[in-house]
Amino acid sequence: MKKRSIYGLLGLALVLAITGCTGTGSSGEVESSILTKVVQSKKLKVGVILSYPPFGFKDEQNNPQGYDVDIAKELAKSLNAELEIIDLDSSSRIPAIETGKVDAVIGSFSRTYERLQKVNVSDPYSAASEKMLVKKDSGIEQVQDLNNRKVAVVKGSTNQAVTELAPQAQLAYFSNSAECVLAVKNGQADAFVEDESFLAYQAKLHPELKVAGDPLIAPLYQGIAVRKGDQEWLNYLNFFVFQMNTQGTNKSLYTKWFGIDPPYKLNPQY
């Protein structure tokens, strides 16, 4: 009996040791927070999509630039940490978080039921709906004006807002967003429907174009994505976003890159 008790205690100790190595306790909470790691190492790794200007891109010297990059820089500054930007695409964002390749993702990451089953997402720092990009002299002011007009759309997109709100619109398909913008500029299309923040940036680059109409869909809110279970890190990021929103830093960065004030209020109400 004594030997069995000793073996039982040894077995329990081994199980506890293995459980401790996973980094999570019985409640599923992460025992060692990324916040602690970043503060101690003074290094922060943030994933950003560097192929979606002006949110993220590389300049002529191959340096990361953009709105999301500037948000990451502000986060690193708040932590007194050295920032490393990791270039991601849309499909690699969640795996990069799950494998620990990055400490956080700042890359047009909106909250959905499916995503929140895999990662946590902070309070929003950005929000956007869809609007229309048109020539300033086009006479197009609302989505119904697209009936019997050519509307540039990206191949493979759903175009649900256009087909439902302007069923007589003539869809002209192009390979990517850049081609759609060019189509509006050269007269191949009368309008292009896309994320209003992206369109605001295009209108800033091309003075002959403007963003027109009311929002076509409910706004999507983007936050900072992190691994599940690390409530301490998530709490810090929520406070960081709160400070950015209430102190005007976020508004300044948004205006810098998009040329307009943020279209939606983000400040939490307490």
Rank of each mutant, 00 (worst) to 15 (best):
D123H: 01
S138E: 11
R149N: 08
A76H: 08
S122M: 03
A76W: 02
V143P: 02
L88M: 01
D68H: 15
V119Y: 08
E179F: 02
S129E: 02
N147R: 11
Q117V: 02
P64V: 04
V121P: 08
N147I: 09
K135S: 14
L165S: 15
D123V: 01
I97S: 09
N80F: 04
A127Q: 09
S177V: 04
L133E: 00
I140W: 12
S129H: 05
A72N: 01
K136E: 08
N148F: 10
L116S: 14
A183L: 08
V119D: 01
Q142G: 04
A172P: 02
Q168R: 13
N148H: 02
D137A: 09
K131L: 03
I85T: 13
A127F: 07
F174L: 05
N159Q: 12
V153F: 06
C180W: 06
K155Q: 10
L146I: 13
K73G: 08
L75G: 03
G139S: 09
Y125A: 08
S175T: 09
I106H: 06
S138T: 11
L171W: 05
E114W: 01
L133C: 01
S51G: 07
S177D: 13
V121Y: 09
E60G: 04
K136N: 10
P53T: 14
G187P: 11
S78G: 10
A152H: 03
S122W: 00
Y113C: 01
N186M: 05
Q142H: 14
K185P: 01
A81H: 15
A152K: 02
S78I: 01
G66K: 09
E164S: 15
Q117K: 15
V162Y: 05
I85D: 11
F55Q: 11
Q160W: 12
S177Q: 13
I85W: 12
F57D: 11
G156T: 13
N159S: 12
D123E: 07
K131W: 08
C180G: 10
Q168L: 14
P95Y: 13
E179G: 06
